[in-house]
Design a protein around this nucleic acid. Structure first.
Lengths: 186, 186
DNA sequence: TGACAAACATACCGACTGGTCTGTACTTTT
DNA sequence: AAAAGTACAGACCAGTCGGTATGTTTGTCA
């Protein structure tokens, strides 16, 4: 959707409804016929676009992983590489962008975004707990702490790429998180 | 300065000059007498307020550390605790906020902010390299990668606190990065 | 004391914002 | 076929934005 692209580029507050309707080839009337206002449009972007992207990228492929260390390393390397090649890495992570901008300003944004991040952390917590049982991860680590740090690191790595615009630095950060993941091995 | 507080709360784009002059008890004329425009005011906030905060919090105390693992753990725990008690943690890290919002949109912001983060990473890289020499850190880790991940994790931890508004989660993320730092010990 | 410039204050401008209003083409129901 | 409902279109609104033009005070030096 055009709204996703506009908010991804300029942020929610900085994004213009006029630009959106222009890019989408529709009119203001059409937009306000389907959405009560700018906020509702933003909520729809989170629910119908950003959420599914998260699901597809970071949840579904990992949810039933038997070896999360290997699979997470592969996921980080794959998506870092993909976002560098597409050039999207300079615009950061769409979910994190909205989280940082809107969480403190709008309750509904906060609730929606927090729910997504919570699902993310809970999924990884369960995956790590499983891997501990099957002996793929050390017993003395806390699944929840590790999951929290992995998700926080994803924020930080994509944030590093965005603020530095350096593919090399983002790659380096990716290798460092892989090193951390290796340190979880028994 | 009032501008720092306004931008910290509402972001740079969302922040209003009218609010700033009102909060500062001055007038538009005075503001535009000292700053050429909103952007210049933003640059001044980065240079004269955010930069020094970074210096005071994360650079000066660590720059000559003989035992960076211990000192970094202490710094993370201390500032996480401080920001939770002050309530500032729900607004995230001022530097990261500006970085995420403005880096892709404005070259001057990008240059200033990237320079700060670069100094940050370089400082930690040097500290880790020193610690490897003195045997406080394992020889087979890359100082630069570790520094990059530590800085990225700081972004991620404060981002987690901001988007979740959960002191418990932020504390947990802090403990996890301490665990990572411990894994760097010989 | 007078000249002059720096340091403000006040009033205001045009551009743009999100949002609304009325009108209209088309579809579905009766 | 008449009536009713839906899905837009596009002009238009009040408000806010960053920015400016001009007036007024204040401090400094001759």
């Amino acid at each position: 959707m055009a709204a996703f692209a506009e908010f991804y580029k300029n942020g929610f507050q900085g994004g213009s409804l006029n630009h959106i309707v222009e890019a989408a080839g529709i009119t203001k009337g059409a937009l306000f016929h389907h959405f009560a206002g700018k906020q509702e449009l933003g909520y729809a972007v989170v629910d119908e676009i950003v959420g599914p992207i998260l699901q597809e990228r970071w949840l579904t492929p990992l949810a039933n992983s038997k070896d999360p260390i290997t699979d997470l390393k592969q996921a980080f390397r794959q998506y870092i590489k993909a976002d560098i090649e597409s050039g999207h890495f300079v615009q950061g992570c769409p979910l994190n962008n909205l989280a940082q901008e809107m969480s403190p300003l709008d309750e509904e944004f906060h609730a929606r975004i927090d729910k997504l991040y919570d699902t993310w952390r809970k999924t990884y917590t369960a995956v790590f707990a499983n891997a501990i049982k099957s002996g793929k991860v050390r017993k003395n680590i806390s699944p929840r702490s590790a999951a929290t740090l992995v998700v926080a690191s994803q924020m930080g790595i994509w944030g590093t790429g965005k603020s530095s615009r350096s593919a090399e630095l983002m790659t380096q950060a990716g290798e460092a998180i892989c090193g951390y993941l290796d340190s979880l091995k028994p």
